[in-house]
Amino acid sequence: MRLATREAFTGFRKSPLLSVLGIVTIAFSLFAFGLFALVALNIRNALQAVEERVEIRAFVADGTSPEAIATAMGDIGSFPEVQQVTYVSPDDALVRAKEEMREFSDVFESGFLPGSMDIRLRPGFRDPATVKAVADRAGTYQFVDDVRYGQEWVEKLYRLRTLATFAGLALGAAFALVAVIIIGATIRTAVLARSREIAIMRLVGATDGFVRMPFLIDGFVKGVLGGLLALGMTWFAAQTITRHMIQTEFFDARVAALGVIAGALIGLLGSLFSVGRHLKEV
C-alpha cells in the first residue's frame, strides 16, 4: 500500500501537466453539474415558497348565517389535508384588496367583495390533485358560490418542478458519464506511459490488484481534488450570482460532501475502467 501510494505520487510528479489536466477536467465536469444542481436547488426553493401560498378560496354567498359557515369550517378543518381554515368577511376582503392593489384602493366599496373561507393545505398535500379534491369538497356546500384555487397556476408550477428535477437528473448523469470517460482517458494515458513498468511488474509476479492499486489511488486523489475544485468554483459562482443578480442559496454540507464523494467515485471508476482494459489487453 505504501509503495502503491508512492507510485501514485510518482505519477503526479512525472506528468504534472497531465495530472492537472485530469483534475481540471473532473472539476469542470462537476462544476457544470454543480451549476445545474444549484439552479435546480434554487428553483425548488422558489417553488416551495410559491407553493406555500397555494390557497383555496371558497366564496360564501351573501346572507349565509355565521353558524352555517362555522360548521362548514369545522368540517373542512378536520380534513387530514387541511392545515388551516380562516374566514375572511367581506370587510376583511376589502381591506386586503386595498392593500394588494393600492392604485385602485379608492375604487373599492364596502360590500363589493364576497366573504370567503380561505383554506391552507398541509405541506405535502399541495399537489394539484389534492388541491382539486379539497376544492371540490368545499364546493359541495350549498352556500358556497364559487371556489378558486388557481388551478392552472398550480398545475404549471408542478410541471415546472417535475421538469427541473428530471432535467437535473438527466443532465447530471450525462455530465457524470462524460467525466468518467475523460478521467478514464487521462488515466489511460498515464497507464500507457507506464506500460513498460506494468509489463515488468506482471513478469516478476505482481498481482493485478497490485498493478491496479497505484492507478486507483491516482484516480481517487484526482477525483477528490477535482471535486474540491468544483465545489470552490460553484461556491464562487453562487456568490457572484448573489452579488450581481439574485439571492442564491448554496448546498448544505451534506450535499457538498456528496459532490466531493462523486468526484472521488468518478476518479476511481475512470481509472478502474482504463486499467482494467489495459490489463485485459496484456
Binding site: 513498460r196 513498468e197 515488468i200 506482471r202 513478469l203 516478476v204 509476479g205 498481482t207 493485478d208
Partner: peptide, 22 residues
C-alpha cells in the same frame, strides 16, 4: 487464474533479448 499465474511467476526467472529494464 491470473492470480495463480502471478504467484507462479514469482518462482520463475524470465530474461529477454531486450533486457526490459526500467
Amino acid at each position: 487464474s491470473r492470480r495463480e499465474v502471478a504467484k507462479l511467476r514469482r518462482k520463475l526467472g524470465i530474461v529477454f533479448q531486450d533486457f526490459r529494464l526500467l
